[in-house]
Design a protein around this nucleic acid. Structure first.
Lengths: 142, 142
DNA sequence: CTATATGGTCAAGCTACTTGACTAGTTCGT
DNA sequence: ACGAACTAGTCAAGTAGCTTGACCATATAG
């Protein structure tokens, strides 16, 4: 199997399994895309435009996504401390809980890889992928 | 950076770069999803239902995708030799050319990785990913 | 202090998917 | 061998998540 095909197959499977794990932990109303958004919001919040750039979509699409996660109680819009035009989107408690659930689910999958490959090989994998990972937006796979 | 995040970032980037490479080679009217379809059709053709299972979508969606690539000249529907209900979808010359273009583009990206990591590490990467790659459908990343 | 750029919203439209209902052909059970 | 159940594919309608375009409010540069 070609490297690129294997990589895409593993990535698709990983996304799917993380989503399943998050759903299994009781967060049934979100999609994988939201997880990528949460990852950007997690440290200190972000503006809708930041989020748009991170996800590689228009700011309108990002704004709609924010509407949704706000409506579902995962985040809230606050006035931005330094720019009266902007809003700072921050995770709520529920948002953080969901983020932790995603991390647990991801760790579970990686744990299964460790059983197949061994710890050393998993470390090497992380190391290699980390060195070729891009800086730009995290896009959906297609 | 976490392993799962790095993997998804690399996969998203790879998909995007392959698509760019395919477009640069003159195939401007297709999307990454079509490439996954071509991969399934390439050896000996497949039925729409096979394709649906491979892509993880409904057969109606697969059928619509087939409509599109037939209309654009990448594939054609033939009567199935063994089942009068079914149609065998096979690539045309243009479909094969596009598939080769995608392989070239993928090889180009992997070549860049080899510059960053070295040949040995790329081999190890392929080996590791091959061992954790799933058998099921190749899904879009989300 | 005017001109231009930027953050965000509103509205409308598009596209790739979905669900549901159906026809034509195949396979299984007796 | 014949009817029941299953399977390949299509037609039609609906939906979700994105897009483009127009716009307002605030910020920044000349």
């Amino acid at each position: 199997m070609a490297l690129s095909a294997a990589l895409l197959a593993v990535a698709g499977d990983l996304t799917h399994r993380i989503n399943d794990g998050v759903v299994a932990r009781g967060f049934t109303d979100i999609r994988p895309a939201h997880g990528f958004a949460f990852a950007r919001l997690a440290p200190d919040g972000a503006t809708a435009t930041d989020l748009a750039a991170h996800l590689g979509v228009t700011k309108q699409a990002a704004s709609q996504l924010v509407d949704e996660i706000v409506r579902k109680g995962y985040a809230e819009r606050r006035p931005h401390p330094e720019d009266a035009r902007a809003r700072l989107i921050v995770l709520t408690g529920r948002g953080w809980a969901c983020t932790r659930a995603a991390e647990e689910a991801a760790a579970e999958v990686v744990g299964r890889w460790a059983e197949l490959l061994g710890e050393g090989e998993v470390r090497a994998l992380r190391e290699s992928l980390g060195r070729i990972a891009p800086y730009g937006p995290i896009r959906p796979a297609w």
